[in-house]
């Protein structure tokens, strides 16, 4: 195309090319959004389904986040629920013990400010906002050790807020549940 083209005809061509490009752009976007929706439904990685609230100032007094209820609990259906509290500047329990190859739900809340909940090497990544409960389903494929840093600025000691996650063999985990109601790997 040169500038010497008839002006009006050139404008028509330009508009046509533009329109085609716009269509391609829309198609690209639809494809990407479709992929995201498909992956979400088929791999069951969806945002938390329900908003749940919990008073951060009384987490330690009543409800599911009292100290004696924190850690990993075996549910009647064979799944495991892990409860944790984040506070300036540690997670309690400080070391989470979970079995491999088992459906697990992490339930956590914050006792003071906004914290982050990230288990390195996994897709577990959520915010802990005081006043609300975060629930994340996950399944670990194999035993191993993971670091669990707080990933949201929570005050001057933020850089010191690292917990550990220990994934152990399922049978070993089940053997331990007979002796303790709530399991952790805090030394």
């Amino acid at each position: 195309m040169t500038l010497q083209d008839n002006h009006a005809a050139g404008a028509v061509v330009a508009a046509r090319v533009e329109r085609k490009w716009a269509m391609v752009s829309v198609a690209v976007i639809v494809l990407l959004a479709g992929m995201a929706a498909f992956a979400g439904i088929h791999q069951a990685t969806m945002p938390q389904a329900r908003v749940e609230t919990a008073d951060p100032t009384t987490l330690h007094i009543a409800g599911e986040f009292v100290e004696s209820n924190l850690g990993s609990a075996l549910e009647p259906d064979g799944s495991v629920t892990v409860r944790a509290v984040a506070q300036q500047y540690s997670f309690t329990p400080q070391c989470l013990l979970v079995p491999a190859e088992t459906p697990i739900t992490f339930r956590a809340s914050s006792a003071d400010v906004v914290h982050g909940f990230l288990i390195q090497g996994t897709n577990i990544n959520t915010m802990l906002v005081p006043g609300y409960v975060s629930a994340i389903p996950i399944r670990f494929d194999k035993p191993g050790d993971h670091l669990m840093p707080c990933h949201e600025f929570c005050g001057i000691g933020h850089e010191g807020m690292w917990a550990n996650v220990k994934v152990i063999d399922k049978a070993a985990f089940l053997a331990m549940t007979s002796a303790h109601r709530r399991l952790t790997c805090v030394e």
Binding site: I29, P47, V51, E52, M127, L128, V129, V133, A135
Partner: peptide, 24 residues
């Protein structure tokens, strides 16, 4: 706020869909 516990999943999806549009 995709991973924030105080917003419903439906609104997260709506915002995600419109975010795709802003690439246009």
């Amino acid at each position: 706020l995709f991973t924030d516990p105080q917003v419903g999943a439906g609104f997260k999806f709506m915002h995600s869909a419109l975010t795709a549009l802003v690439a246009l």
